[in-house]
Nucleic acid binder design. Sequence first.
DNA 1: TGACTTGGTGAACATAGTTAACTATGCTGT
DNA 2: ACAGCATAGTTAACTATGTTCACCAAGTCA
Lengths: 207, 207
Amino acid sequence: MGTVERRERERAATRAKILDAARELFVTEGYDAVTMRRIADRIEYTAAALYRHFPDRQALLDAVVEADFRTFADALRARVGDEADPIERIRLAGLAYVDFAVRYPSHYRLLFMTPRPERPGSASGAAGRDAYLILRRAVEAALAAGRFRPDLTDPGVVTHALWAAVHGVAALHVARQGGSVPEAEPRSVAAVVCDAVLDGLARRRPR
Amino acid sequence: MGTVERRERERAATRAKILDAARELFVTEGYDAVTMRRIADRIEYTAAALYRHFPDRQALLDAVVEADFRTFADALRARVGDEADPIERIRLAGLAYVDFAVRYPSHYRLLFMTPRPERPGSASGAAGRDAYLILRRAVEAALAAGRFRPDLTDPGVVTHALWAAVHGVAALHVARQGGSVPEAEPRSVAAVVCDAVLDGLARRRPR
DNA sequence: TGACTTGGTGAACATAGTTAACTATGCTGT
DNA sequence: ACAGCATAGTTAACTATGTTCACCAAGTCA
């Protein structure tokens, strides 16, 4: 009997409905709008029903994050993967980060700017690690190819430096839109930062 | 009669007590711990009493932010002010930012990583603008002294680029402490980023 | 058929921010 | 001196939140 598989399918379907509702609320109205009751309303359930599918609100949010993180990581991999030059791969990845932040500020905030206390028992962070590793691999390749200054040997530090520079552009944009400090166009800033930091890290002479 | 001044002093004193209590809760237990009732408990008031001094919770938090922002800006100015070389001033400012973030992560989060919707009627953001201007002035000086690449002419973009790079290091540290991605020591990363981006922006040849 | 499991409901609880009504106290103008 | 008033506080309540618990209906299985 395929009855058990059908049950599983149904369960997965309502789980997905919950996640979609949460995501939509989240994207259109921001973090605070994502209440259990409003999610439930949107799919004509009760708030309590959600607890049949997620242990608590945080886990639900985590699931949204994890899913979208994976989407992002896949898109990033696709956009970057076929570029041969590691430095150029890094630049592409950096611009992709900022693009993502500009397009989905709420997501970016939740993905990268919210401390999620590494809940026990959640296999979370896998997609995040993936995204990180894409950049890290490119850095390692560039390092191996001798494209960076000879005093730079720790791929962790270099990866972090690059990630931080790009993240800064995105985070500033997300946090400061409509703020008290004038904002420059994030994509231009991203380009300037990427070029500058890559140039600053690069081995001299090539040109 | 000095009676009105005394009243004002008293009012300012309890206002300060409220702010101190809020700040302490905020620093030691994080954002979520700062509830009106807990603040009030700590100074042996009722939650409702706080509304005699602040229109709502957000305004109270804003006041904490504004005060600490000013402290930070002053410290920054002091640390940077007597350095003659503009590039060196920029570097000092960058490292100070990261120091601040490492020392007061909750503050840094609230100051720089939380969208505060520019509430109508709040004269907020003045201290933030100050901190921004310190960096901006240094950039303008460096620009005027011809220390940057000739294609870099917009001080807004350059300031943002530098600010973003440094902010990235701090923000990454604050958001990712205990996260799923290994973290490099933020001060080393800050140094690498500062040096790299300054070098990348700098006019070639000098050396 | 009768027990069990699953996925849902409805009511309730604790804790938030916030507000309204009230009170005490001390200042002020006559 | 006193009537009025502004100030700073309290108490109790309202609403919204996350979450839990007792219950229920329907499908599954022995």
